[in-house]
Design a binder for these strands. Structure first.
Length: 425
RNA sequence: GGAGAGGUGGCUGAGUGGUUGAAAGCAGCGGUCUUGAAAACCGCCGGGGGUUCGCGCCUCCCGUGGGUUCGAAUCCCACCCUCUCCGCCA
């Protein structure tokens, strides 16, 4: 959520900044609501003040044994007016809030303007796609040849967009998780977190998935209105909801491995083949809570932390900065890391690293005590995948294949593979 | 699932209808004293919102949401959470 003050004192400028990302702010509606809000709020507070004074007067009169009937009658009249004013106020505030909650974050000035994915800007490239002297196969063919990846069985057990992995491939998948966690905790200074995979609506509202993106989530049908997490961002970032952190606690860097569940509504026909887009996948997530002045430097660091995973695995990738039109709802700036997939002859997203500024923190009420002012101020939050495990597995299969369909195990993963150095059909 | 207890400021903990946003203690901050420190003493010390150039003034917040009342931390209802005991269980 943006600072509501922006809608009051800086409405035109805010609308202009949001227009960069193609969002049309309801300027007239907001300024009309604001005018209404102001007069109703002042009136309401005056009535509250009168009520309080009257109640005190009644109390004193009774204590002194005087007749308070007139005062009580006056109070009753005030109470009636107040009730009406409060109802009006909460209606206006409700409208205001409903609009405010649906407004996306303002892109940072360094974000290139653009309408779609095509206008994202590549900022760097690491490694170079290997030249195969045969036609490289995609992970579906490779997995099937190995007999270690099975979508049909998953479809029988559950339905479309699930996978069963078995044997050494399942182990490789687990090895990736261990490797990533060890790297981020051991070398990058993140604290490992184990968190709930079911969350309440407040948490989803805090990180911005609700109210706007309910359709992307799986909701439990039981008594408790719980949701399956779409990313560890939700539980991990909500660790600091409603907290005022001391300066010394920042930056707070957390890493967590969780499964992620996404309904993928609206993606029909997209990536239906293979493990690229599933309803359930594993992810290692990096989250940082930082001082406001540090957040853009932290974004560079966090992105580099995610890239290190690919470098250690020796997987070629490129990093792009998302243009204003392709950024997520809550983000001020996002880097996507895209890994090379020989089977598709293209770079595919494997991590998305974002700085949310104070946008999530405002919803979460996550603050830090600024030592300079001694006052609580909103912290800044960031997160990024480090990395999406399923897609990393796909990248290894496709990049480490040979003509016989054998998959070499990257050196960095061998300590986790119990002596297995390759997977063979 | 059954039975009970409880949710008050950073923490401990008073407060059961009336000038209570809330005693007291601890912690924290500033000061006096001291060569320095400790102790002692004095003062300050929650958060959100509105308004104002600012000092300030007003308002809301005692788990959450409703209700009763001139007036609610205090009474009533619903919900949430925590703890204890029993049962079941990875």
């Amino acid at each position: 959520m943006l600072d509501p003050r922006l809608f009051r004192s800086d409405l035109e400028e805010t609308a202009r900044l949001l227009a960069r990302r193609g969002y049309l702010l309801e300027v007239e509606r907001l300024s009309a609501l604001e005018a209404e809000r102001k007069s109703i709020q002042i009136k309401t507070q005056e009535l509250q003040s009168a009520r309080n004074a009257n109640a005190k007067a009644v109390g004193m009169a009774k204590k002194e044994g005087r007749d308070a009937a007139d005062l009580v009658a006056e109070g009753a009249a005030l109470a009636e007016q107040l009730k009406a004013a409060e109802a009006q106020l909460s209606e206006v505030q409700g409208h205001f809030e409903a609009i405010a909650l649906a407004v996306p974050n303002i892109p940072h000035e360094s974000v290139p303007e653009g309408r779609s994915e095509e206008e994202n800007v590549e900022v760097r490239r690491w490694g170079s796609p290997q030249a195969f002297d045969f036609t490289p196969r995609d992970h579906v063919d490779l997995g099937a040849a190995l007999k270690l990846m099975d979508a049909e069985t998953a479809a029988k057990i559950t339905g479309a967009r699930f996978t069963v992995l078995s044997g050494a491939l399942a182990r490789l998948h687990r090895a990736l998780i261990q490797f990533m966690l060890d790297l981020h905790t051991g070398e990058h200074g993140y604290k490992e977190m184990y968190v709930p995979y079911l969350v309440n609506a407040d948490s989803l509202r805090g990180t911005g998935q609700l109210p706007k993106f309910e359709a992307d989530l799986f909701r439990l049908a039981g008594e408790q209105p719980y949701y399956l997490i779409p990313t560890a961002e939700v539980p991990v970032t909500n660790v600091v909801r409603d907290l005022i952190l001391e300066d010394g606690e920042l930056p707070l860097k957390m890493v967590s491995h969780t499964p992620c569940f996404r309904s993928e509504a609206g993606s029909y026909g997209k990536d239906t083949r293979g493990m690229i887009r599933q309803h359930q996948f594993e992810k290692v997530e990096l989250v940082q809570i930082v001082r406001p002045a540090d957040s853009f430097a932290a974004l560079e660091q966090l992105t580099a932390n995610a890239e290190t995973v690919l470098q250690r695995l020796e997987l070629p990738y490129r990093t792009v900065v998302l243009c204003t039109g392709d950024m997520g709802f809550s983000s001020t700036k996002t880097y996507d890391i895209e890994v090379w997939l020989p089977g598709q002859q293209s770079y595919r997203e494997i991590s998305s690293c974002s700085n949310f500024g104070d946008f999530q923190a405002r919803r979460l009420q996550t603050r830090w005590r600024n030592p300079a002012t001694k006052k609580p101020e909103l912290a800044h939050t960031l997160n990024g995948s480090g990395l999406a495990v399923g897609r990393t597995l796909v990248a290894i299969l496709e990049n480490y294949q040979d003509e016989a369909g054998r998959i070499a195990i990257p050196d960095a993963l061998q300590p986790y593979m119990g002596g297995i150095t390759s997977l063979s059909p």
